[in-house]
């Protein structure tokens, strides 16, 4: 059981590299922002798996805080996007 959980944890961490690829290579700025947004949601999944493996309850509190903070961050970035034009 413990091995399975560790496999899930490492696979979930591996998925973050897909997002990092998109953040590094994304041709336009909105592409990078989509990468950041998805990365924030994946971290919540990592928090959930870590809470199960270590048995520490406070991990899910970190997850809740991360949802709210990444939401606020994405909204701020999107607001900045809609006020500027490409090729300027």
């Amino acid at each position: 059981m413990n091995t399975l959980l560790h496999i899930i944890l490492y696979a979930q961490i591996g998925l973050c590299f897909f997002c990092l690829y998109r953040i590094a290579r994304g041709p336009t700025i909105p592409d990078r922002m989509v990468g950041i947004d998805i990365f924030g949601i994946l971290v919540v999944g990592i928090c959930a798996v870590l809470a199960i493996i270590t048995g520490r309850m406070f991990m899910i509190d970190i997850g809740i805080a991360w949802v709210i903070l990444s939401f606020a961050g994405t909204l701020t970035l999107a607001k900045y996007l809609s006020k500027r034009k490409l090729n300027e």
């Binding site: 336009t28 700025i29 909105p30 922002m33 989509v34 947004d37 949601i41 949802v67 709210i68 990444s70 939401f71 994405t74 909204l75 970035l77 999107a78 607001k79 900045y80 996007l81 809609s82 500027r84 034009k85 490409l86 090729n87």
Partner: peptide
């Protein structure tokens, strides 16, 4: 709720940005 509102903001932002 937060994911759908964030997607909505991002897609509107990137349309106005000119993609």
């Amino acid at each position: 709720l937060s994911a759908s509102v964030a997607a909505h903001a991002l897609i509107r932002g990137s349309y106005i940005f000119g993609v």
